Amino acid sequence: MSRINVPAVDTATGATAEVYAHIKKAAGSVPNTYAAIGALNPGALKVMLQADIVLAAGSLSKQDIETIRLAVSATTGCDYCEAAHSLLGKMAGLKPDALKQIRAGEPTGEARRDALVQFVRKLVSTRGTVSEADFAAITHAGYTDAQLVDISLAIAGITFTNVFNRINDTTLDFPAVH
C-alpha cells in the first residue's frame, strides 16, 4: 500500500479532475503514480504530461523513449516504473528478451539500443561531465545533438517519477517484473 493517502480518482475536483480526465481519455485509467502526483500537485502532473507530448513529437522513437525510461528505472531501483515501462516498452514493440536485457544493463544485440542503454545508465549512475569517449560512443551510434536534448528530457521526466515512487512506495497497478 502506498505511503501517501490519495483520495479516489473519481472524487477529484478542479484542476486535478481536469488533468485526470485527459489521462483517462488517453489511457483509459489513471495510473496510481499519476493519481498521487495529481492529487497533491496537479500542476506538477500537467508539466510531466506536457513533457511527454514534447517527447512524442521529438526526434526519438517510442522504443528509444521506453528504453531510456526502463534503463533509468532499473538503475535507480524504481519497481513501479520498471513495471510500467516494461509494459509500455512491449506496447512500443520491444521484445520480452530486450526488455529483460535493458533492465539488467545487458547487451540486446542491437548496437544502437545498447549504446543508448549504456549512455543512459552512465549518466544516471555517475557524476560530472560525460567523458569524450562516452560522448563519442553515443554520437557514433547515430544519435544527433537534437536527440541528446530529447534523451536528457526523457531522463529528467522519468527521474521525477522514480524519485516520487521511491518516496511513496506506490502500489503497483502494472504487472510486476522479475
Score class of each variant (00 low, 15 high):
M1A: 09
M1R: 13
M1N: 07
P7S: 13
P7N: 14
A8G: 08
T11N: 11
T11M: 08
A15Y: 06
A15D: 15
E18Q: 14
E18W: 02
V19D: 00
V19M: 01
Y20L: 01
Y20C: 00
A21N: 08
K25N: 06
K25V: 00
A26W: 00
G28C: 03
S29Q: 10
V30N: 00
P31K: 05
P31A: 02
N32V: 02
T33W: 08
Y34S: 06
A35H: 00
A36K: 02
I37R: 05
I37P: 02
G38I: 05
P42N: 06
A44T: 14
L45R: 00
L45K: 09
L49C: 03
A51E: 13
I53D: 12
V54F: 12
A56Y: 03
G58I: 09
S59R: 15
K62D: 15
D64I: 07
I65H: 03
R69C: 06
R69E: 05
A71P: 02
A71D: 04
V72N: 01
V72K: 02
A74T: 07
T75H: 04
T75D: 04
G77I: 12
D79H: 13
Y80M: 04
C81D: 06
A83F: 03
A83E: 06
A83T: 08
H85C: 05
H85P: 02
L87F: 05
K90V: 03
L94P: 01
P96G: 13
P96I: 12
P96A: 03
D97R: 04
A98I: 07
K100I: 05
R103V: 02
R103D: 03
R103C: 02
G105A: 01
E106W: 04
G109M: 08
A111D: 10
R112K: 15
V120T: 11
V120H: 08
R121K: 15
K122Y: 09
V124L: 11
T126P: 03
G128P: 00
T129K: 15
V130Y: 05
S131Q: 10
A133V: 12
D134N: 09
A137I: 10
A137F: 08
T139S: 14
A141V: 08
G142T: 10
Y143I: 06
D145V: 13
A146S: 14
Q147S: 07
Q147V: 05
L148V: 12
I151P: 00
S152R: 05
S152K: 07
S152T: 15
S152Q: 12
L153G: 11
L153C: 06
I155M: 14
A156T: 15
A156M: 14
T159S: 13
T159G: 09
T159C: 05
F160L: 14
F160V: 11
F160D: 07
T161W: 00
N162L: 08
N162H: 01
N162D: 13
D169T: 15
D169C: 08
T171I: 06
F174P: 00
A176K: 14
A176Y: 01
